[in-house]
Amino acid sequence: MTWFLNSPQQSLGFILADSGFDVWIANTRGTRFSRQHATLDASKPEYWNWSWDELVDYDLPATFDFVYHQTGQKLHYVGHSLGTLIALASFSEGKLVDKLRSAALLSPVAYLSHMTTSIGILAAKAFLGEIISLVGVAEFNPKVEAVAQFLNSLCKNPGVDCYDLLTSFTGKNCCLNASTVDMALKNEPQSTSTKNLVHLSQTVRDGTLSKFNYEFQVMNVEHYGQGRPPIYNLSNIPTNLPLFLSYGGRDALADVEDVENLLDKLKFHQGDKLTTLFIKDYAHVDFIMGVNAKEMVYNALIAFFGRY
């Protein structure tokens, strides 16, 4: 839904369609549009035994396969935030690239060790501290009492302004319409798995991009055949894959230093195949809901797609 919250003249989904693109929108598993399964029930813990590794290994490739078989054409991909993380991890493992024309990554998240969101840092520490208040909670649904209590406990920390949760998490967005924010908060945040948030917290702590760490050597050996989880090596992303990265100077999640760390991993990319667009006043959500995002980002993104 995040691609359609503004007017048709301002929302990327509509702008791409009006520019002649065939637009496919994917929902992440666990959100209210995507809770079905061949054998598992979303009300049971087994359904929620996944992190973003599974999105990399199964969901994104399945989405690509589906669209490719429907259209017979290679895809342009647009991701924001978690959508950039799973794309980069997939590309580094050689997945998707045979069905891909190019990829646009908005607020790219690969490294999280410099994020400046106070509530995000507190949450990451809490998730890694065995998430005492959430033991047994497989689905992280902000509307469920146990999760709401956990969030309330974070809100009691000095420096966390829970009256403006969006800014607390994402940084000070410059260019949002109040009615769009209201609509976003009616629809978000959606459910995810607690395991997924633990995995993201490990990324914050470790400063590396690796598969889920079971924290016990014997369990890592059982899953990976080695004591530590394998790393996603972003230097393996094909150097001729056209990439468009846009990031903001006020983003508290995709911090400039972390994005520059990502760009360093892409330093051997073919020069004409890597386009970067830095917007000083933008924070995390401006890239999908900013009223001026068409002028600031989307026109350049569409021109980039046009070259490929």
Rank of each mutant, 00 (worst) to 15 (best):
A89H: 03
S92K: 00
T84M: 04
R101M: 09
A87E: 04
L88M: 15
S92W: 00
T84R: 00
K95N: 11
G72C: 09
G79P: 11
T84W: 01
H76E: 09
P108D: 05
F91H: 02
L106P: 11
L105F: 13
L88F: 12
H80A: 07
S81R: 00
V97Y: 04
V97A: 02
L100A: 13
T84N: 02
L96W: 05
H80Q: 14
R101E: 14
L100Y: 08
A104I: 02
I86T: 14
K74C: 07
V109H: 03
R101I: 14
G79V: 07
E93G: 03
S113T: 12
V109K: 02
A104E: 14
L96Q: 10
K95I: 01
F91V: 00
T71H: 03
G72K: 07
L105V: 02
H76G: 02
H80F: 14
I86V: 15
F91S: 00
Y77M: 03
L96H: 10
A103R: 01
S102V: 02
K74A: 06
A103L: 09
A104S: 15
T71L: 05
R101P: 03
H80T: 13
S113C: 12
S102H: 06
A110D: 08
Q73T: 13
S90T: 12
V97S: 08
H76M: 11
Q73C: 14
R101Q: 14
G94P: 09
A110M: 06
D98Q: 15
D98Y: 11
A89N: 09
R101V: 13
S81A: 13
